[in-house]
Amino acid sequence: MLHTIALIVENKAGVLVRIAGLFSRRGFNIDSLTVGATDNPDYSRMTITVEGDEVILEQVTKQLNKLVNVIRVSEMDPNESVDRELAIIKVAAKKEDRSEIMQIVSVFRAKIIDVSPRSLIIEVTGTNDKIEAMVRLLRQFGIKEMARTGRVSMVRGTKAVVP
C-alpha cells in the first residue's frame, strides 16, 4: 500500500541527504519525494510517498522522528486529506489530432502552456489517478517528453501540519 507522509524539517544543508540516506539504509522504498519552502524560512516541508505495509510505515515514521532536523512527521489519511501532483507533458500534435487533444485537455481541466507546429505542452494538476488517466489518453498521440512532480498533501479542515 502507498502511504503519504508530510514532514516539517529544518531548512539546513544536508537534511535531504539524511532523509534519503535513512530510507536507503533501512531498506524502505521512496515512491516520490517533494520538498519546498513553507511560509517560515527556517523550515521546509517534504511530502514522501512510501510503499509498504503498516509495520514498515510505523518504522519509517519512528525512524524519521529520530532525525534531529526533522520537526514533525505526519501520516496523511487519504480520506482526511487532499493531495495534488503536477505533470507537464509534451505531446505530438498533428493537425488532425489537435482538436481531440484540446478536448481531452478541457475535460481534465488541464492547460496548454506551449504550442509549436508539431507538438503541444500540457500542464495538468490533480491526484495521481487523474494524471495517470490523462497520460493514458495522451499516449495514443505520442508522448515526446514528460516531467512530473511528486505529491503534495494537506489535511482537510483546520488541522494543520506545521512546526
Binding site: V55, E58, Q59, K62, Q63, N65, K66
Partner: peptide, 8 residues
C-alpha cells in the same frame, strides 16, 4: 527509550 525499537 527509543520508540523505533519497539515493534522493529
Amino acid at each position: 527509550v527509543d520508540p523505533a525499537e519497539i515493534g522493529k
